[in-house]
């Protein structure tokens, strides 16, 4: 041991600390320079916060739309993906400038309460009821989604709910309500997670669930679940864009929100939406439907709450 001459290493803890600080500082540099470059349109007014449902992010649609929007308008859109309920809540608090949601009843309440400035239909996709191939509740030949739910409840077949106040969850609850059933008991599970996780749980438990078609398709072969009920009008999943009323908070980026609303309704954007997913799944995940031009909605739902500003 003593024959080896060990040199006391020269850099000590102080050196390490300083080195760590320098490293950290160098990492901060791009942030600072990026902040300094924020010049268009005007510093501070550039950020637009979009509160949206997870399905738009999970499906990848936002990843396709956001760069387009930023490029065309010079704004920096910050999409925050949460459940529809949380998205509306962020709007109500003035923490978001514009919302993209698919929870028609809650949206209407939001507009009625005066939190929103303008609400416009953007697109839709559809929900499907999926379940194990064996179909223990026998819902495949059910005449309607509501009847399918009734059969599931009667059979007490395993059902996995999102349970997260999302648009999908709201729609599912609407179906139960229409069926006159208050779901509960050992067969009814609330996952409290996003659509993808919920599907995985349903798959593992051989249970039924209500899902948007896009997420179901994107999970693909991974699932043993089959589409058992589809095409029912009550399973339509309609997305609306809502600008948050700028009167209530002076922190709202009204111009930015309006710009995103306008962007979504533009024919070019609508075309992008209509083609999204074709390359990956062979079919589109969303059907563009600016201002209900596709006529998918019953007239009562189609009326924009506010007169569209041209």
């Amino acid at each position: 041991m003593s024959t080896i001459t060990r040199r006391a290493p020269t850099p000590h803890a102080g050196f390490v600390l300083v080195a760590a600080m320098i490293w950290a500082a160098s990492l901060l540099a791009p942030v600072v320079s990026a902040a300094a470059q924020q010049a268009t349109p005007t510093a501070g007014a550039r950020d637009v916060i979009l509160a949206t449902t997870t399905s738009t992010q999970d499906s990848g649609l936002l990843d396709a739309l956001v760069p387009l929007f930023n490029e065309q308008t010079g704004y920096a859109l910050k999409p925050i993906a949460v459940g529809s309920g949380a998205a509306l809540d962020l709007g109500e608090r003035g923490e978001a400038d514009v919302l993209l949601a698919h929870s028609p009843a809650a949206e209407q309440a939001f507009m009625d309460a005066g939190f929103g400035a303008e609400r416009r239909t953007v697109m839709y996709n559809d929900f499907v009821v999926v379940g194990p191939e064996a179909d223990p509740a026998g819902i495949a030949d059910a005449p309607s989604a509501v009847e399918a739910m009734t059969r599931i409840a009667d059979a007490e077949a395993a059902f996995v709910s999102r349970g997260d106040d999302s648009g999908t969850h709201q729609l599912e609850l609407g179906l139960w309500e229409d069926a006159g059933i208050t779901p509960g008991g050992g067969w009814y599970v609330e996952s409290g997670t996003g659509m993808g996780d919920t599907l995985n749980i349903a798959n593992a438990r051989d249970g039924y669930t209500v899902t948007d078609r896009g997420t179901y398709l994107s999970l693909g072969d991974r699932l043993d679940l089959e589409v058992l009920v589809e095409g029912d009008p009550s399973l339509l999943n309609v997305y609306h864009v809502i600008t948050v009323d700028p009167e209530r908070y002076d922190t709202i980026n009204a111009a930015g929100g309006q710009a995103f609303l306008d962007f979504l309704l533009e024919p070019a954007t609508q075309e992008v939406i209509g083609e999204f997913g074709v390359d990956r799944f062979g079919e589109p995940l969303f059907t563009p439907c600016a201002d209900n031009a596709c006529g998918v909605l019953p007239s009562t739902q189609a009326t924009p709450a506010a007169t569209p500003a041209a």
Binding site: M1, S2, T5, R6, R7, A8
Partner: peptide, 9 residues
């Protein structure tokens, strides 16, 4: 001189 002090006899 240059040895680490904790290794001394």
């Amino acid at each position: 001189g240059e040895r680490p002090a904790r290794g001394l006899s």
